[in-house]
């Protein structure tokens, strides 16, 4: 148990080893450990963010679906309304058309009736003249009696 210069050699080794350990062991090891720590932390944060984004996405999709649903029902109701409108319009048009056709037909009937009446009148007056001629056995001056005949025809 002699205390001698061994002590100082040991102290020298000690300080050299501490220096070496700091430079070549502790530095790289703790660096790698910290790097892994940050990598893990980043990964966890990214996972969290991903989960959040997913939840947000689901919410958004739900919103979209709801929006689409309301939009679709709106479109359907609009279409229904528009269809009804069109039907109403067509109905109206058809009625107007039929009325027009009816009116035209009536008018035609009337003119035809009038024409027939007129021709009938002419024929009746001619018949009347012919009858009168037969009865009188003589010529009736058409010129002299045309006023009379016209009056007669107008009365028919």
């Amino acid at each position: 148990m002699n205390i001698n210069v061994t002590l100082f050699w040991q102290m020298l080794f000690f300080l050299a080893f501490v220096w070496f350990s700091k430079k070549f062991v502790w530095g790289p090891m703790i660096g790698a450990l910290n790097e892994r720590k940050t990598t893990i932390a980043d990964g966890l944060a990214a996972a969290d963010k991903g989960q959040q984004a997913e939840a947000e996405g689901v919410k958004q999709v739900e919103q979209f679906v709801a929006q689409a649903k309301t939009q679709a029902s709106e479109i359907v109701s609009n279409a229904e309304k528009q269809g009804g409108d069109i039907i109403d319009e067509m109905r109206e048009q058809a009625r107007a058309e039929s009325e027009r056709i009816l009116a035209a037909a009536r008018e035609e009937i009337e003119t035809e009736t009038n024409k027939a009446k007129d021709s009938l009148r002419g024929q009746v007056s001619a018949l009347a003249v012919a009858g009168a001629q037969q009865i009188l056995k003589r010529e009736v001056d058409e010129k002299a009696h045309s006023d009379l005949l016209d009056q007669l025809a107008a009365k028919l």
């Binding site: 070496f20 350990s21 062991v25 790289p28 790698a32």
Partner: peptide
């Protein structure tokens, strides 16, 4: 001391964060 430092520094030299 050298054994310890050699072993540790060899590992530390090719240390990976993976």
């Amino acid at each position: 001391g050298a054994l310890f430092l050699l072993f540790f520094s060899r590992i530390a030299k090719r240390v990976t964060a993976g």
